[in-house]
């Protein structure tokens, strides 16, 4: 049977609905996430930041700071790997916003907007697909750490839990960058604003060095910085196998970010979409 030669049902006789069900929204979002994964497969160079960066940063930081900060490399790894992990994965979440902006400027977005799908699906799909990137970055960081001699005391179960915590928090943060992506004029400006937010968050934290050698004012910021709590939580999980208050604080921080930025992003996105 041929599509173009079969008769088309008239517009007046069709059964139509003006709203989208929750089930359809979920299905549409997964279809859009599937598209994100196909794109990655077609352009594997997109994965450079989640593959090479963890490798280079882990090796570089280990040998540059290892001796100075912890006396030797082996005793620096339990401090460093969680820090590098958090830093890499969070940096990766910036890409969500940049790619969203690029995508929204493309012709294919017009088709998404003209289809009877949930309005939110392209955004939800992009955020969903990016969790795969976070997973890759997380896995690679732990593997490189292991090769360098990192043996997390917490055991594999807690390492996986730590990885999941980082992925959840990165996903939460990606809402901030998605928001920039939706409101910015160009992809490069998204990158610019995002790094402006990102650098203080990741470097003014306990990710690479213990905070007790810092001046008081800096310690104050480092101690309230949610990234520090996330790093501490990952250290507790991976190195000690404990779930401490930092774990809950990190999750709380993630929840707050999502509660603020998800509605903002969705509102701005719907206005444009």
């Amino acid at each position: 049977m041929s599509t173009i030669t079969s008769t088309i049902q008239s517009g007046a006789s069709r059964e139509l609905r003006n709203h989208v069900s929750v089930g359809q929204t979920v299905r549409n979002s997964f279809s859009m996430a599937y598209r994100g994964l196909l794109k990655v497969r077609r352009t594997p160079e997109q994965l450079i930041d989640v593959t090479l960066q963890p490798i280079i940063f882990t090796v570089m930081f280990t040998f540059i700071f290892g001796g100075a900060i912890a006396g030797n490399v082996a005793s620096y790894l339990p401090l460093l790997i969680p820090g590098i992990l958090v830093q890499t994965v969070i940096t990766t979440s910036v890409v969500t916003g940049v790619q969203l902006r690029e995508d929204m400027d493309k012709g294919v977005f017009d088709r998404f907007k003209s289809l009877p799908i949930a309005r939110i699906a392209p955004l939800a799909g992009a955020l969903l697909a990016d969790t795969v990137r976070y997973t890759i970055a997380t896995t690679i960081t732990f593997v490189v750490g292991f090769i360098l001699g990192y043996r997390p005391e917490g055991g594999i179960g807690f390492v996986v839990l730590a990885g999941l915590l980082v992925i959840v928090c990165a996903w939460a943060l990606s809402w901030i960058f998605a928001f920039f992506g939706v409101i910015a004029r160009s992809a490069s400006s998204v990158q610019g604003i995002s790094f402006l937010v990102l650098f203080p968050l990741t470097f003014l934290s306990n990710a690479f060095v213990p905070s007790d050698t810092m001046p008081d004012w800096l310690q104050w910021f480092v101690n309230i910085n949610p990234v520090s709590h996330l790093v501490s939580a990952v250290r507790d999980l991976a190195n000690l196998g404990t779930v401490g208050s930092d774990f809950w604080l990190a999750l709380l921080g993630a929840a707050v970010v999502v509660m603020i930025f998800a509605p903002l992003t969705v509102r701005a996105y719907m206005r444009k979409a």
Partner: peptide, 9 residues
């Protein structure tokens, strides 16, 4: 302007 996804087949 083509409203298809350039990165896909």
């Amino acid at each position: 302007y083509a409203s298809v996804d350039e990165t896909l087949s």
